Amino acid sequence: MSNDDPYAIRMYEPGDRTAFLELFDDVFGGGSEAWFRWKYLENPYVSHVPMFVAEHDGDLVGARPYMAFRLRMGEETPLGLQTGDTMVHPDHQRRGLFTRMTERSFEYYGDLAEDVLTFSVPNALSRPGYLKLGCREVGQLPTAYRVQNPAALADGLASRAASVLSPIVTAGLRARQLRASVPTDVRVTRHDDVPASTLAALYERSVPDAAHALREERFYDWRFDRPDWAYETYLARDRASDEPIAGVVVGRQEQGDTDVVALADVVPLVGGDGRRRGLAALLDRIVSEEADADLVTATSSVIPKSLLYAYGFLPDDRLPLSRVTTPTVLISRLFDGREEPSWRLNGIRLDDPESWRLTFTEHNGF
């Protein structure tokens, strides 16, 4: 900060936590000590809090945090930082603080010896800012919704979607499920926790070359310890051997008046007939037991679209949902300190949508 510059841009310090939470409550509402501790202090992949802040007259007026993941891309495991919780106090907006905090983060992580990249799903308002800073749009991350109560949906979707979707809900969901073919050689077990070793072993059975979060035991132990979501696990087991062949972590959260259930993670991420049979049995059990939820959502990049359709899920990139939903768009770039960053890491194109295999696990909102 110079004599003419009223703002100091710096890394997060331990004494900033209370001020961060106060600013978060002012800007977004909510936030808690437990949530902050889980997301930023207990993350197993960084030894620091990956956050840059703006300070004015001793007050914290802006923050540019990242949620850290260890990504897997072929045989490499670079550090991946996902943007989220970016905020500037209303009295200090439109003064370039978002840009300055982000540029400072690019400088810091670009100087590290290891490869570090950012990947994010910013909203339409903040996306142009990232693009100006050298990020690129990778493509849309398609999401599928099983809308079980259109009238309960929030954020303006309810009134528009109710008239469009009610006939589908009332006439189609149960009929589709009845027509779905449920494998008889698979049984499903439900667990009120997230069995880290079992899920990590399922993941290792078929690992894609595309970029995704490394799913190891410590990842599962941390990732699904989030205090503002409730998680449980469904495992599909081969009846003959009783061995797990697929698993789904299901998250639940009340969002306003809407009861949302998310298929937060799916393992293995890729696979053949055994995986498909397991997923069919899992979807059948999950939609039956979550019939009271207003909304069940899944990422269609890891579950066959035909299976999702069979169980009443509609994609948000096609009618009718494309009329009433906002696309989720992935952006990315390397922190390599160059004005024009490289777009290839370990032979993988970062700006190619086929280079990514993501679930809600890699999304800081779930």
Rank of each mutant, 00 (worst) to 15 (best):
residue 356 W to Y: 04
residue 63 A to R: 02
residue 222 W to H: 04
residue 160 R to N: 02
residue 335 F to M: 09
residue 240 A to Q: 14
residue 79 L to Y: 07
residue 172 G to R: 01
residue 319 L to D: 09
residue 90 P to M: 09
residue 361 T to E: 06
residue 86 T to D: 12
residue 111 D to A: 15
residue 273 D to C: 04
residue 141 L to T: 10
residue 140 Q to L: 09
residue 38 W to C: 08
residue 69 F to H: 15
residue 219 F to C: 07
residue 91 D to N: 13
residue 248 V to A: 07
residue 193 D to I: 12
residue 298 A to N: 00
residue 99 T to E: 14
residue 22 E to I: 09
residue 212 H to D: 01
residue 234 Y to P: 04
residue 249 V to K: 07
residue 200 A to K: 13
residue 271 G to E: 07
residue 325 T to H: 08
residue 297 T to E: 10
residue 300 S to H: 05
residue 264 A to N: 00
residue 70 R to V: 05
residue 361 T to G: 08
residue 103 E to P: 04
residue 110 G to C: 01
residue 294 D to I: 09
residue 309 Y to H: 15
residue 294 D to H: 13
residue 308 L to S: 00
residue 162 A to P: 00
residue 192 D to I: 09
residue 97 L to V: 04
residue 73 M to H: 06
residue 229 W to M: 04
residue 314 L to D: 02
residue 299 T to V: 11
residue 336 D to Y: 15
residue 12 Y to G: 00
residue 8 A to F: 12
residue 52 F to P: 04
residue 191 H to R: 14
residue 130 Y to D: 00
residue 276 R to F: 10
residue 2 S to A: 15
residue 303 I to N: 02
residue 138 V to Y: 09
residue 97 L to T: 05
residue 49 V to W: 10
residue 349 R to M: 12
residue 112 L to T: 14
residue 126 S to I: 15
residue 167 P to M: 02
residue 151 A to N: 02
residue 159 S to N: 07
residue 277 R to W: 14
